[in-house]
Design a protein around this nucleic acid. Structure first.
Length: 493
RNA sequence: GGGCCGUUAGCUCAGCCUGGUAGAGCAUCUGCCUUUUAAGCAGAGGGUCGCUGGUUCGAGUCCAGCACGGCUCACCA
């Protein structure tokens, strides 16, 4: 615990004095009957005569947020989960003893208040306190009332203070909750079953990311925090769950940035008897549904740009995109050698062993991705970067896959699923080989997943949507840390 | 991991270029104040200037290293 500064000393002393005078400073027998937001919406517009006729038993609880005191009368704002309501406390209503108790309270203390509504000279709906109780003594000073808590590091480390004093932060997380609720309803309405599959997996699969490793003591075995739920959700397709989704955490042992947090929330869903093209339509519908319910419009402002989510969204193949944004002719990127030269020219370090398809995606990430502001489905992904996707019937070097980009960020990845168990085994073997070349630990082949495919998985398409990035889009947040309550930071000290 | 920037009172920030014994506002404390809302008036207290070392008669200020954070590049299906 830190050394106590003057203000913390003062608050502790007040706490001691309250105890000595018989006040219980941390009671739990107070039951508020009203919430600020309800009171404001119900009585914010009614006449003063009507207010006078209301009973005097409005009962609220919350945190004292700003005290304006004039000797024998004071105003303050009481902040609860709904927002803030002004409270008026005066000595001739609370009595000398009651008002003295109030005078000893501090900004940040949690109190219960009851009384009668009225409107002040400045027309603000206000609760005149007929009684007031301390419900929790706050022992630390709150940040400044005007600037709030601005230090980014303090905001993330002490999110509780951030939430207390920065109302726009509360709004972001309320909106996040609403978005997730809308998504759930969207899939439930379409007969998808929500499931939970293992977070701790013996063989990490479903994405090429580096996993976190942990250990199970009783079984003496290593487990991996999942990088994706994909292989388990497909087992469910095999089992007959033809429409399934999971909305939950993934963990990737990678760097931290404005768009990456090591644990992040992913929606994955699988629909039997559908193709990746069907999922494009479904994705457009999902985003428009969320946009209309959250913003009332398919247009989203993002920084100084307006993103229009009205379908249909642009569809562009990977190579077309590179031609367009790299201002390059097709033959300059059609084979590995010219592509290498082009990549180097654009400042990429080119690994001599890198396969054509992998390099193509690297070039795309560098020169195209940041420019895809309006929603764009990029299609025509190479086979070698898509070991779980179905081959394109017309061109077996490609797969039936899209990634969705909005605001220069990847938001979704989807494909028609590979359900040929023999092809899948070959792809796994190739992946394992190419991984041995690099310094990644060679990953074991998930034999149980292949066994499941051998029983037969219905033709299907599946998609993953990065929920944090989707929330960033709908809250105009530029950093993923602003939409995750407790982003990963190094420990203090 | 590289580059750039930041770290000064509980909070928000000046002060650093050009070295000379630490400043403001809010908050706190004392007094006055019964319709304020960044309430007001008068007064007071509060600092390991991120940490460690160096240069100097003297370092918040200059230099180096370290820690944490931000931006960015790299990494990242």
């Amino acid at each position: 615990m830190d050394d106590l500064n003057e203000q913390m000393e003062v608050r502790r002393k007040k706490l001691l004095q309250l105890r000595e005078s018989g006040v219980v400073p941390y009671p739990n027998d107070f039951r508020p009957k009203h919430v600020s937001s309800q009171i404001l919406s119900e009585f914010g517009a009614v006449s003063d005569d009507h207010l006078r006729a209301l009973p005097d038993d409005f009962t609220m609880a919350g945190r004292i947020m700003g005290i304006r005191s004039f000797g024998k009368a004071s105003f303050f704002h009481l902040q609860d989960r709904g927002g803030r309501l002004q409270v008026y406390a005066r000595q001739d209503r609370l009595g000398k003893e009651g008002y003295d108790l109030f005078k000893s309270l501090d900004v940040g203390d949690i109190v219960g208040v009851w009384g009668k509504l009225f409107r002040t000279k400045t027309k603000e709906l206000t609760l005149e306190a007929h009684g007031l109780r301390l419900l929790c003594k706050c022992l630390r000073p709150l940040p400044e009332k005007w600037h709030g808590l601005a230090d980014v590091e303090a905001r993330y480390r002490q999110r509780y203070v951030d939430l207390m004093v920065n109302s726009e932060v509360r709004e972001v997380f309320k909106r996040r909750s609403r978005i997730i609720r809308i998504i759930r309803r969207f899939f439930e309405d379409r007969d998808f079953l929500e499931v939970e599959t293992p977070m701790m997996q013996p063989i990490p699969g479903g994405a090429a990311a580096r996993p976190f490793i942990t250990h199970h003591n009783a079984l003496d075995m290593n487990l991996y925090l999942r990088v994706a739920p994909e292989l388990f959700l497909k087992r469910l397709l095999v089992g007959g769950v033809e429409r399934v989704f999971e909305l939950n955490r993934n963990f990737r042992n990678e760097g931290v940035s404005v768009r990456h947090n090591p644990e992040f929330t992913m929606l994955e869903f699988y629909q039997g008897y559908a193709t990746y093209e069907d999922l494009m339509t479904l994705t457009e519908e999902l985003f428009v549904t969320v946009a209309k319910e959250i913003l009332g419009s398919p247009k989203v402002s993002s920084g100084d740009q307006v993103i229009d989510l009205q379908p249909p969204w642009r569809r562009l193949s990977l190579t077309e995109a590179i031609e367009e944004y790299g201002k390059v002719k097709r033959e300059e990127v059609a084979t590995i050698e010219p592509l290498r030269a082009f990549a180097r020219k654009n400042g990429l370090q080119v690994d001599t062993e890198i396969p054509y398809g992998n390099l193509l995606v690297e070039v795309f990430d560098k020169i195209v991705e940041p420019n895809l502001i309006q929603p764009t489905f990029v299609i025509g992904y190479p086979l070698e970067v898509s070991p779980l996707a179905r081959k394109d019937d017309a061109n077996p070097a490609l797969v039936d896959r899209f990634e969705l980009f909005i605001g220069g960020r990847e938001l979704a990845n989807a494909f028609s699923e590979l359900n040929d168990p023999l092809d899948q085994r070959d792809r796994f073997l190739k992946q394992a080989q190419s991984r041995k070349i690099g310094d990644e630990p060679a990953s074991a082949i998930d034999e149980d997943f292949l066994r499941a495919l051998e029983y037969g998985m219905p033709p299907a398409a599946g998609e993953g949507i990065g929920i944090d990035r989707m929330v960033m889009l709908f809250t105009a947040s530029s950093s993923i840390r602003d939409v995750i309550l407790f982003p990963l930071l190094r420990p203090e000290h």
